[in-house]
């Protein structure tokens, strides 16, 4: 008897949190298809007439598609860079013996602890002095720099667990340093690389603060920045704001629905080891 009540309670809790999780997204979708009166009279009511024009307005006045494209590009580019640069460094840190090795590794570890917010003023100044304001490359390098310490930490840890006999075998087969790294070790490290790729990509896509500081042209806005176009100032129509939110989250939801197991594993590894 007691068992049964426990189970019922568990199902109720499960259903409750399921509703809690889906609810905000559901309301946002509803509201993205309503006109102002429909939203202000009752967020929960079903739209009387589907206002697809909200979406066209979001495309035109917030340039949301452009922003999604920008963020996908920034996230992708910085992820690729993080992995290549991170693997190069991790390879040396894990496989070579040299004097400063311990020191360099520790410095990168401390880098994980630095709160990004205390670097925003110098980075903003730096951007001005190297003409990096409103340029994609500067923002991509910033994202890469902040993803690197964790990448190096994860990669070095993983490589340390890969037997050195593999290197020796590859060397005997005539592999040089580059082909050893790219043809032998990187394929072995695919699990940890995909973990880091997921972490870096998610962080890059949603990033807000550097996007705000470095990009001031509307056609260079990141998704996060573009969504905030509407807040502040009076904006008469609410529908397009909700449309913007929906367009902004679609790429991540699609990626998540396709790769959800991989994403969950990756985030978990990142949390536990990081």
């Amino acid at each position: 008897m007691k068992r049964k009540t426990g189970r019922v309670f568990a199902y109720i809790f499960a259903a409750f949190w399921m509703i809690m999780t889906i609810f905000p997204l559901f309301i946002t979708i509803l509201c993205s298809l309503k006109d102002n009166a429909g939203i202000t009279l009752g967020m929960l009511s079903l739209p009387k007439k589907l206002m697809w024009s909200n979406y066209t307005q979001a495309f035109e006045s917030a340039h949301i598609i452009q922003a999604v494209g920008n963020s996908l590009f920034f996230a992708m580019a910085s992820t690729v860079l993080t992995i290549i640069i991170g693997m190069l460094a991790a390879y040396v840190l894990s496989r070579k013996k040299f004097k400063l090795r311990g020191f360099i590794y520790t410095v990168f570890l401390v880098g994980v602890m630095v709160p990004i917010h205390c670097t925003i003023i110098p980075i903003s100044t730096l951007a001005t002095s190297v003409n990096g304001k409103n340029t994609s490359w500067f923002l991509i390098l910033v994202y890469t720099a902040f993803a690197l310490p964790q990448a190096i930490f994860l990669f070095t840890g993983y490589l340390n667990g890969v037997s050195k006999e593999l290197d020796d075998a590859a060397r005997i087969d005539g592999c040089g340093e580059l082909s050893l790294l790219f043809r032998v070790l990187i394929p072995v490290c695919v699990p940890i690389i995909s973990t880091e790729a997921i972490l870096a990509f998610i962080a890059g896509y949603g990033e807000l603060i550097f996007g705000m500081i470095i990009m001031s042209d509307q056609d260079k806005y990141t998704v996060a920045r573009a969504m905030l176009t509407f807040t502040g100032g009076y904006k008469v129509s609410l529908g397009p704001i909700f449309a913007c939110i929906i367009v902004a989250v679609i790429p991540m939801i699609v990626i998540y629905l396709i790769f959800h197991e991989k994403v969950q594993d990756g985030m978990l590894t990142g949390a536990i080891k990081g």
Binding site: W17, I27, T28, G206, T231, A248, V249, I253
Partner: peptide, 24 residues
């Protein structure tokens, strides 16, 4: 299904989550 659904909010970017709740 629970696992997939419960985890989803992390994937939405923070700003999107914030705005949804601002209106709620």
């Amino acid at each position: 299904l629970m696992k997939t659904a419960y985890f989803m909010p992390v994937m939405l970017s923070t700003t999107a989550v914030a705005l949804m709740w601002v209106y709620i």
